[in-house]
Design a protein around this nucleic acid. Sequence first.
DNA 1: CATCGTATGGTACATCGTACTAGTCAAGCG
DNA 2: CGCTTGACTAGTACGATGTACCATACGATG
Lengths: 228, 228
Amino acid sequence: MAAKPRSASKRSQRTKLQPIQEASSEPPLSRERIVAIAVELLDAQGIDGLTMRRLADRLGSGVMSLYWHVDNKEDVFDLALDSVLEHRGSPETGESPDWRGDVVHMLEDWRARMLRHPWSASLLPRRALGPNILSRLEMLSKTLSRAGVADANLNAAIWSLWNYVMGATLTRASFDLSEEDRAAAQQRLTHLSEHYPTIERSRLLLDNDWDGAFRKGLDFLLDGLSPR
Amino acid sequence: MAAKPRSASKRSQRTKLQPIQEASSEPPLSRERIVAIAVELLDAQGIDGLTMRRLADRLGSGVMSLYWHVDNKEDVFDLALDSVLEHRGSPETGESPDWRGDVVHMLEDWRARMLRHPWSASLLPRRALGPNILSRLEMLSKTLSRAGVADANLNAAIWSLWNYVMGATLTRASFDLSEEDRAAAQQRLTHLSEHYPTIERSRLLLDNDWDGAFRKGLDFLLDGLSPR
DNA sequence: CATCGTATGGTACATCGTACTAGTCAAGCG
DNA sequence: CGCTTGACTAGTACGATGTACCATACGATG
């Protein structure tokens, strides 16, 4: 009666030997393979490009076979997101004297990883507390604590940095997707410069130095966070 | 042959008089009515609860009639989002001496509006440069400029605040939706306190004072932004 | 009366996620 | 050896969805 395993791990505990799987075509299905191909598909076709049928096609399997390894499509999204946020805890946990540099480095890596897969930003609005995220939060917490941030401010400080990174990534990803919209917006804006004179003058929407702006804003925030 | 109007305004220019529309049941369709009901539906049923069929039902119209007023479902989402972000430019544009208070007030209003419609956060990842957002950016820009932020830092400052608000709203909305997940996470975390000792100790995931944390983080950021 | 722009809505279709069901194959056991 | 069992694969089918296409209705204008 093949009881469908509960939502948790049903991954092959890889008993003795995998049955040779002659070189014919496809390796056996596995969560890892599903997630990997899902990410490929998302990278290539965007968020709407991922359908269970396409995923199965690319894996050379039947559609319903996926559901043995995965609960549903939501599950695929969650796994794909988590795989993008991968983070191996730095081995030198916390004796570097340059705490600011450490924080900046970790957060820039975080942002860069997500921007390499722009669809990940639009998946953020779902619960996302996988081990990778927790590990990053832990690193933040430890470093800030070490830097002398007061305990009463610690949580607020962590969330501030998290929020900033999420917002910046989201903004960057969505603007990147629609370069022409931005042009159109600036167009409209120039046309309506009577309504929005200040942002028109500062060319807010034409400024393309996203990385620089991210770094600068992060510096503002860290300036404010630094214990005085 | 009834050329379908281009994507722009086809809204009734309300020629002379609407044809009485006897009290039978429904007022005529209009963009405004569609958006209003869409927001109701989204509030009640969440993002997946909005379907064109349901929308038409609630409006007492046929499904395809919607498409006269609206390009497609994406369009409905965009309009709904914009309607949530409504912003009437403050009449006292910029002579208040308390620039910090002005900024905080506007951003808190922004966040509050979005949290009143939690689905709006998950719509953010799309291009969203409607007039309401532009108006808020303009206000930010003007106020910061008045406060003495250097021109070279102005754009970065604006984006920092924007990013922070977006991230904070997104985080808050997604955590709010899954209270039980948070409990489960903290459970898992307590269990794995060896891996995440610092955030376990600071009870990061149990801290419920979102409003306070938002305000505190905003203060950090504004501290860093303030010209020295 | 004829024509046209505005507006409405029914039918139909392709596509989606996935429930249900049946199948295959290897390992364990009598 | 045959039988069972459990891990895994897959075809079929169903209900839901967005929307293209088409027919229609009606007031205003000629």
